[in-house]
Protein backbone atom coordinates (compact mmCIF):
# COMPACT_ATOMS: atom_id res chain seq x y z
CA UNK A 1 0.00 0.00 0.00
CA UNK A 2 2.69 2.45 1.05
CA UNK A 3 4.71 1.55 -2.05
CA UNK A 4 1.74 2.16 -4.30
CA UNK A 5 0.80 5.45 -2.68
CA UNK A 6 4.33 6.85 -2.66
CA UNK A 7 4.79 5.84 -6.27
CA UNK A 8 1.54 7.60 -7.15
CA UNK A 9 2.65 10.80 -5.49
CA UNK A 10 6.08 10.81 -7.03
CA UNK A 11 4.64 10.28 -10.48
CA UNK A 12 2.07 12.97 -9.74
CA UNK A 13 4.96 15.31 -8.99
CA UNK A 14 6.25 14.42 -12.50
CA UNK A 15 9.38 12.74 -11.31
CA UNK A 16 10.70 10.36 -14.00
CA UNK A 17 9.59 6.76 -13.65
CA UNK A 18 12.95 5.14 -12.91
CA UNK A 19 13.90 7.67 -10.30
CA UNK A 20 10.48 7.46 -8.67
CA UNK A 21 10.67 3.67 -8.45
CA UNK A 22 14.09 3.82 -6.82
CA UNK A 23 12.95 6.48 -4.35
CA UNK A 24 9.83 4.46 -3.54
CA UNK A 25 11.68 1.22 -2.89
CA UNK A 26 14.32 2.77 -0.71
CA UNK A 27 12.02 5.07 1.23
CA UNK A 28 9.68 2.21 2.13
CA UNK A 29 12.59 0.04 3.14
CA UNK A 30 13.91 2.86 5.31
CA UNK A 31 10.46 3.24 6.89
CA UNK A 32 10.41 -0.51 7.54
CA UNK A 33 13.80 -0.47 9.24
CA UNK A 34 12.74 2.57 11.23
CA UNK A 35 9.67 0.65 12.41
CA UNK A 36 11.86 -2.23 13.47
CA UNK A 37 14.32 0.04 15.28
CA UNK A 38 11.73 2.07 17.13
CA UNK A 39 8.98 -0.42 17.86
CA UNK A 40 9.78 -4.05 17.30
CA UNK A 41 13.27 -4.01 18.81
CA UNK A 42 11.95 -2.28 21.92
CA UNK A 43 9.04 -4.63 22.59
CA UNK A 44 8.96 -5.53 26.24
CA UNK A 45 7.98 -9.09 25.57
CA UNK A 46 9.26 -10.49 22.32
CA UNK A 47 7.08 -13.57 22.05
CA UNK A 48 5.54 -14.34 18.67
CA UNK A 49 2.11 -13.32 19.87
CA UNK A 50 3.09 -9.87 21.05
CA UNK A 51 5.08 -9.19 17.88
CA UNK A 52 2.07 -10.14 15.78
CA UNK A 53 -0.16 -7.84 17.80
CA UNK A 54 2.39 -5.10 17.43
CA UNK A 55 2.71 -5.42 13.67
CA UNK A 56 -1.06 -5.41 13.37
CA UNK A 57 -1.03 -2.18 15.34
CA UNK A 58 1.63 -0.68 13.09
CA UNK A 59 -0.34 -1.68 10.00
CA UNK A 60 -3.38 0.06 11.47
CA UNK A 61 -1.38 3.21 12.15
CA UNK A 62 0.09 3.34 8.63
CA UNK A 63 -3.21 2.62 6.95
CA UNK A 64 -5.18 5.00 9.14
CA UNK A 65 -2.64 7.81 8.74
CA UNK A 66 -2.61 7.55 4.96
CA UNK A 67 -6.43 7.47 4.98
CA UNK A 68 -6.64 10.56 7.19
CA UNK A 69 -3.66 12.60 5.99
CA UNK A 70 -4.12 12.06 2.27
CA UNK A 71 -7.51 10.69 1.33
CA UNK A 72 -9.44 7.49 0.90
CA UNK A 73 -9.91 7.66 -2.85
CA UNK A 74 -8.53 5.17 -5.31
CA UNK A 75 -5.95 6.86 -7.51
CA UNK A 76 -5.28 5.66 -11.04
CA UNK A 77 -1.62 5.38 -12.03
CA UNK A 78 -0.33 5.45 -15.60
CA UNK A 79 1.11 2.30 -17.16
CA UNK A 80 4.90 2.17 -17.00
CA UNK A 81 5.36 1.34 -20.66
CA UNK A 82 4.07 3.88 -23.16
CA UNK A 83 1.79 1.48 -25.06
CA UNK A 84 -1.35 0.39 -23.20
CA UNK A 85 -1.66 -3.19 -24.38
CA UNK A 86 0.16 -5.92 -26.26
CA UNK A 87 -1.14 -8.87 -28.20
CA UNK A 88 0.66 -12.13 -28.10
CA UNK A 89 -0.52 -15.48 -29.44
CA UNK A 90 -3.84 -13.89 -30.31
CA UNK A 91 -4.45 -12.73 -26.75
CA UNK A 92 -4.14 -9.11 -25.82
CA UNK A 93 -3.40 -7.87 -22.35
CA UNK A 94 -2.29 -4.69 -20.61
CA UNK A 95 1.42 -3.91 -21.00
CA UNK A 96 1.81 -3.57 -17.25
CA UNK A 97 1.43 -7.34 -16.92
CA UNK A 98 4.75 -7.75 -18.73
CA UNK A 99 6.40 -5.55 -16.12
CA UNK A 100 4.78 -7.51 -13.31
CA UNK A 101 5.90 -10.86 -14.69
CA UNK A 102 9.42 -9.63 -15.43
CA UNK A 103 9.79 -8.08 -11.99
CA UNK A 104 8.48 -11.21 -10.27
CA UNK A 105 10.91 -13.40 -12.18
CA UNK A 106 13.87 -11.15 -11.36
CA UNK A 107 12.81 -11.01 -7.74
CA UNK A 108 12.44 -14.77 -7.38
CA UNK A 109 15.78 -15.50 -9.02
CA UNK A 110 17.63 -12.91 -6.96
CA UNK A 111 16.00 -13.96 -3.70
CA UNK A 112 16.86 -17.55 -4.49
CA UNK A 113 20.47 -16.64 -5.04
CA UNK A 114 20.54 -14.42 -2.00
CA UNK A 115 19.21 -17.07 0.36
CA UNK A 116 21.09 -20.05 -0.97
CA UNK A 117 24.38 -18.65 -2.26
CA UNK A 118 25.39 -15.58 -0.28
CA UNK A 119 26.75 -15.60 3.21
CA UNK A 120 24.34 -13.04 4.60
CA UNK A 121 21.36 -14.89 3.12
CA UNK A 122 22.46 -18.06 4.88
CA UNK A 123 22.87 -16.18 8.12
CA UNK A 124 19.35 -14.88 7.76
CA UNK A 125 18.03 -18.41 7.37
CA UNK A 126 19.99 -19.49 10.39
CA UNK A 127 18.48 -16.72 12.50
CA UNK A 128 15.01 -17.69 11.31
CA UNK A 129 15.58 -21.33 12.15
CA UNK A 130 17.13 -20.88 15.57
CA UNK A 131 17.96 -17.39 16.81
CA UNK A 132 19.65 -18.62 19.96
CA UNK A 133 22.04 -20.93 18.13
CA UNK A 134 22.78 -18.20 15.62
CA UNK A 135 23.66 -15.83 18.46
CA UNK A 136 26.00 -18.43 19.90
CA UNK A 137 27.77 -18.57 16.56
CA UNK A 138 28.44 -14.86 16.86
CA UNK A 139 25.63 -13.56 14.68
CA UNK A 140 24.25 -10.19 15.61
CA UNK A 141 20.58 -11.23 15.33
CA UNK A 142 19.29 -7.70 15.79
CA UNK A 143 21.21 -6.49 12.78
CA UNK A 144 20.01 -9.42 10.72
CA UNK A 145 16.42 -8.80 11.73
CA UNK A 146 16.79 -5.12 10.89
CA UNK A 147 18.12 -6.03 7.49
CA UNK A 148 15.31 -8.51 6.91
CA UNK A 149 12.76 -5.80 7.74
CA UNK A 150 14.45 -3.53 5.23
CA UNK A 151 14.38 -6.23 2.55
CA UNK A 152 10.76 -7.05 3.17
CA UNK A 153 9.89 -3.36 3.00
CA UNK A 154 11.77 -3.14 -0.29
CA UNK A 155 10.03 -6.16 -1.78
CA UNK A 156 6.64 -5.02 -0.52
CA UNK A 157 7.16 -1.56 -2.00
CA UNK A 158 8.18 -3.15 -5.27
CA UNK A 159 4.99 -5.21 -5.40
CA UNK A 160 2.91 -2.19 -4.46
CA UNK A 161 4.51 0.14 -6.97
CA UNK A 162 4.26 -2.16 -9.96
CA UNK A 163 0.71 -3.31 -9.25
CA UNK A 164 -0.87 0.16 -8.95
CA UNK A 165 -1.25 0.75 -12.71
CA UNK A 166 -3.47 -2.35 -12.71
CA UNK A 167 -5.32 -1.99 -9.46
CA UNK A 168 -5.23 1.72 -8.43
CA UNK A 169 -3.48 3.11 -5.38
CA UNK A 170 -5.67 3.24 -2.29
CA UNK A 171 -5.09 3.51 1.42
CA UNK A 172 -6.40 0.03 2.22
CA UNK A 173 -5.31 -1.85 -0.86
CA UNK A 174 -2.47 -3.74 0.79
CA UNK A 175 -4.55 -6.13 2.86
CA UNK A 176 -6.04 -8.19 0.04
CA UNK A 177 -2.67 -8.58 -1.67
CA UNK A 178 -1.03 -9.66 1.54
CA UNK A 179 -3.73 -12.18 2.35
CA UNK A 180 -3.69 -13.65 -1.13
CA UNK A 181 0.06 -13.93 -1.02
CA UNK A 182 -0.33 -15.79 2.24
CA UNK A 183 -2.97 -18.09 0.73
CA UNK A 184 -0.62 -18.78 -2.15
CA UNK A 185 2.23 -19.69 0.15
CA UNK A 186 -0.05 -22.00 2.15
CA UNK A 187 -1.24 -23.74 -0.99
CA UNK A 188 2.30 -24.11 -2.29
CA UNK A 189 3.86 -25.00 1.03
CA UNK A 190 5.73 -22.77 3.47
CA UNK A 191 9.38 -22.03 3.04
CA UNK A 192 9.33 -23.08 -0.56
CA UNK A 193 9.66 -20.40 -3.23
CA UNK A 194 8.72 -22.62 -6.16
CA UNK A 195 5.72 -23.87 -4.22
CA UNK A 196 4.60 -20.34 -3.49
CA UNK A 197 4.97 -19.41 -7.14
CA UNK A 198 2.93 -22.38 -8.32
CA UNK A 199 0.42 -21.90 -5.51
CA UNK A 200 0.02 -18.29 -6.61
CA UNK A 201 -0.55 -19.38 -10.20
CA UNK A 202 -3.13 -22.00 -9.11
CA UNK A 203 -5.02 -19.47 -7.04
CA UNK A 204 -4.90 -16.83 -9.75
CA UNK A 205 -6.23 -19.24 -12.39
CA UNK A 206 -8.94 -20.54 -10.04
CA UNK A 207 -9.98 -16.97 -9.33
CA UNK A 208 -10.28 -16.05 -12.98
CA UNK A 209 -12.16 -19.26 -13.75
CA UNK A 210 -14.61 -18.68 -10.92
CA UNK A 211 -15.11 -15.08 -12.04
CA UNK A 212 -15.85 -16.34 -15.54
CA UNK A 213 -18.04 -19.33 -14.78
CA UNK A 214 -19.67 -18.62 -11.41
CA UNK A 215 -19.73 -14.95 -10.52
CA UNK A 216 -17.11 -12.27 -10.15
CA UNK A 217 -18.57 -11.38 -6.75
CA UNK A 218 -16.99 -14.38 -5.08
CA UNK A 219 -13.66 -13.97 -6.86
CA UNK A 220 -11.87 -12.75 -3.74
CA UNK A 221 -13.22 -15.55 -1.58
CA UNK A 222 -11.95 -18.32 -3.86
CA UNK A 223 -8.31 -17.99 -2.80
CA UNK A 224 -9.17 -18.53 0.85
CA UNK A 225 -11.58 -21.37 0.24
CA UNK A 226 -8.84 -23.16 -1.67
CA UNK A 227 -6.44 -22.39 1.16
CA UNK A 228 -8.76 -23.93 3.76
CA UNK A 229 -9.32 -27.03 1.65
CA UNK A 230 -5.57 -27.47 1.13
CA UNK A 231 -4.99 -27.04 4.85
CA UNK A 232 -7.50 -29.79 5.46
CA UNK A 233 -6.19 -32.39 3.06
CA UNK A 234 -2.50 -31.47 2.87
CA UNK A 235 -1.47 -29.22 5.75
CA UNK A 236 2.07 -29.10 4.42
CA UNK A 237 0.98 -27.56 1.15
CA UNK A 238 1.22 -29.19 -2.23
CA UNK A 239 4.96 -29.04 -2.59
CA UNK A 240 6.63 -28.74 0.74
CA UNK A 241 6.95 -31.59 3.15
CA UNK A 242 8.64 -29.83 6.05
CA UNK A 243 8.89 -26.64 8.02
CA UNK A 244 5.37 -26.54 9.42
CA UNK A 245 5.27 -26.87 13.14
CA UNK A 246 2.61 -29.32 14.24
CA UNK A 247 3.16 -29.77 17.90
Amino acid sequence: MLGGMIEFFLLQASIPLYLSLIITFFSVSIIASFIYRVFIANAKNSSDLSLIIMTVGIAMILRGSVGVLIDKNAHPVKDFLNFPSVSMFGVSFASQYIIVIAATTILIVSLYFYFSKTFSGKIMQAVAANPLAATLFGVDTKKVKLFSFAISGFVGAMAGAIIVPISFAQYDSGLMFGLKGFAASVVGGFGNNTGALIGGLCIGIAESLSAGYVSSVYKDAVAFVIMIIILFIRPHGIFSSKDIERV
Binding site: I52, L175, G178, F182, A221, F224, I228, L231, P235, I244
Partner: peptide, 29 residues
Protein backbone atom coordinates in the same frame (compact mmCIF):
# COMPACT_ATOMS: atom_id res chain seq x y z
CA UNK B 1 -10.57 -24.12 13.31
CA UNK B 2 -9.55 -27.74 12.82
CA UNK B 3 -7.14 -27.09 9.93
CA UNK B 4 -6.15 -23.51 10.79
CA UNK B 5 -5.19 -24.19 14.39
CA UNK B 6 -2.47 -26.49 13.15
CA UNK B 7 -0.69 -23.36 11.96
CA UNK B 8 1.96 -21.51 13.90
CA UNK B 9 0.87 -18.25 15.49
CA UNK B 10 1.77 -15.78 12.76
CA UNK B 11 0.21 -17.96 10.09
CA UNK B 12 -2.86 -18.37 12.29
CA UNK B 13 -3.21 -14.59 12.44
CA UNK B 14 -3.22 -14.37 8.66
CA UNK B 15 -5.59 -17.32 8.25
CA UNK B 16 -8.17 -15.95 10.68
CA UNK B 17 -7.89 -12.53 9.05
CA UNK B 18 -8.63 -14.21 5.72
CA UNK B 19 -11.62 -16.10 7.15
CA UNK B 20 -13.13 -12.90 8.49
CA UNK B 21 -12.71 -11.32 5.05
CA UNK B 22 -14.27 -14.32 3.30
CA UNK B 23 -17.36 -14.19 5.49
CA UNK B 24 -17.67 -10.48 4.75
CA UNK B 25 -17.25 -11.03 1.01
CA UNK B 26 -19.87 -13.78 1.01
CA UNK B 27 -22.34 -11.56 2.86
CA UNK B 28 -21.66 -8.68 0.46
CA UNK B 29 -22.03 -11.01 -2.50
Amino acid sequence: GYPTLKLKSHYLAMATLAIGEVINILIMG
